[in-house]
Design a protein around this nucleic acid. Sequence first.
DNA 1: TTACAAGTTTAGGCATACCAAAATATTTAT
DNA 2: ATAAATATTTTGGTATGCCTAAACTTGTAA
Lengths: 153, 153
Amino acid sequence: MELKRREEDYLEAIYEISKRKGKARTTDLAEYLGIKPASVTEMLQKLAAKGLLEYHRYSGVVLSKKGEEVALSVRERHDTIRELLKYLQVPPDIAQRDACIMEHNLSPITIIQLKKFINFIKNCPKNAPIWLEHFKKYSETGEFDCGEECEKI
Amino acid sequence: MELKRREEDYLEAIYEISKRKGKARTTDLAEYLGIKPASVTEMLQKLAAKGLLEYHRYSGVVLSKKGEEVALSVRERHDTIRELLKYLQVPPDIAQRDACIMEHNLSPITIIQLKKFINFIKNCPKNAPIWLEHFKKYSETGEFDCGEECEKI
DNA sequence: TTACAAGTTTAGGCATACCAAAATATTTAT
DNA sequence: ATAAATATTTTGGTATGCCTAAACTTGTAA
């Protein structure tokens, strides 16, 4: 069953809140998502009907196995994007927000490439590769002031 | 006035079609966007009311100055993202599609950083930087088979 | 020139996702 | 235990953006 981006948002939010509080309540979710409780109730009932969570009126909500799988996969995409943006020197709060926008609908192939790029940076034999340092400097100053060694980059 | 993502899509589409045909007709747009003509008419009337294009029934449509400015800025974001994905070794057709998804709503700061990163690659004194070649290889093989020189990357 | 084909618009409907206000349930404090 | 405060749900309504079917224009070919 194909999930809508907003459904993924809810599942992710429920996952994050449950991690801290054991279950997610309507008001928590409303605050987390920046919407009104009435809207949350409605969506929770829809997600329950799809078997993605356990819903009992007035009790808060817990993800089903299936729901948790979805939430984890969304979160993984989210983190991948956030990490990429971090390397591209996007400020953390903005990276966080923009990852929320991109985490849905991106092609799996794109996500795979982002991951590869991140691993390329992380696992480089010389860890923290020099060119990344150079990009950081370039990003701040607009200058390639790297002198001699630049020949090798 | 804050534009919706779908409105931006339409403006971009109108821009692209007008570039080739002088103006954009309802049917062209419907085909381009993969929707029915009736839906296009509706949106064109809305965009006309916002002063983003000239609409006269049965005549096709031309962007206003304001509309063209928006279209160009969307297209620029689109191209920036597409170029980044290209460097990350995402296949062109997928990069094209995913750029369409990301071109809306991304923070201007993120876009600026993407541009900086692209320029960092393009304008590197040693043009086509070695590390990018290495990433390409890594992306295909998963191996850092770069031997000696790797110390300097 | 008129009739028909192609293109466009209008009208009525649907799904999503939100909201405010009212109704209902639960929790807490006395 | 019960009233008041808090939380949740229901109800009815809105906006967006799509659809189909029917009505209307326009251009073209006989």
